[in-house]
Design a protein around this nucleic acid. Sequence first.
DNA 1: CACTCCTCAGTGCAAGTTGCATCTATTGAA
DNA 2: TTCAATAGATGCAACTTGCACTGAGGAGTG
Lengths: 149, 149
Amino acid sequence: MTQHTCFRHPKDYPCTCAMGNLYRFVEPVVLFLLKCKGRSYGYELSSELAEHALTDAEIEAAALYRTLRQLEKNGFVRSEWDSGHSGPARRVYALTERGEVHLEEWVTVLDHMSASMVRFVLDAKSECSQSETHEDVVGVATLAGWAGQ
Amino acid sequence: MTQHTCFRHPKDYPCTCAMGNLYRFVEPVVLFLLKCKGRSYGYELSSELAEHALTDAEIEAAALYRTLRQLEKNGFVRSEWDSGHSGPARRVYALTERGEVHLEEWVTVLDHMSASMVRFVLDAKSECSQSETHEDVVGVATLAGWAGQ
DNA sequence: CACTCCTCAGTGCAAGTTGCATCTATTGAA
DNA sequence: TTCAATAGATGCAACTTGCACTGAGGAGTG
């Protein structure tokens, strides 16, 4: 990330924006929404994505559309054009069987990851309180200056 | 990710390898280890990283070294050469005050993220069992064919 | 001595990813 | 006519990453 300040969140809020491509977690959420709804299209999904998002980073429409096309390329969803309504045509997506399996794989992965994170947070918090020499200064800035590469 | 098969894990294990740059979670773990140990160097950290890693993706030495340099560039750690021992010289790192704050920001972020993930996993699991038409097929393959962009 | 292996820190590059700006088109309302 | 909302998508510069590789110091072995 080149971006060295996050202009999307207040200054004292540690946000995930600067982590950049972490918004890949778009993929499992899209699969989940398609499973729940049966079928949907990009523009509709984009508004519902935030409710189930795994980070607080804003999800760009561009990323969502590209993710959907890639999911289709990999056989996890299938799509067709739908013009039976007013306004521009919609590319309507639905999960395939492979997509259902893929969602379950994601659930397993996220289950493991969340457990690791919870463990890490506990470890880190106890380590912090252990060597508490200064006041509690949690949440003073954002992750904007994160390391990356 | 180009990589379409994961050769590092058994076939029926949904791994995070294919998620690629997720191993950015190297950063908080490095900060945490430096806080615990006081000071350390790349080669040593690389062996301890796996124990606290937030994903099961292998952490490459190249990524670790680059992360450390970047952390230093951003003022979260500082380093000096140490030759007072046999073998090649080591670049020894220690947390700065900014680094301690940054670690606490990461803890806050990961706390939020883990909560979101736990919620998502619960939602997805209940959704799956709700519409259970086929046997439980969790964990049949890897995330190798994940969508990306 | 030559040879090999381990330790330690990197670099180079092709391929992939992403944020942002921009484009096209349809429809309805002012 | 003009504007706004809906809908999907692309172009590109900048960045990230996996993999292969370099190179140096020291220990052990024959």
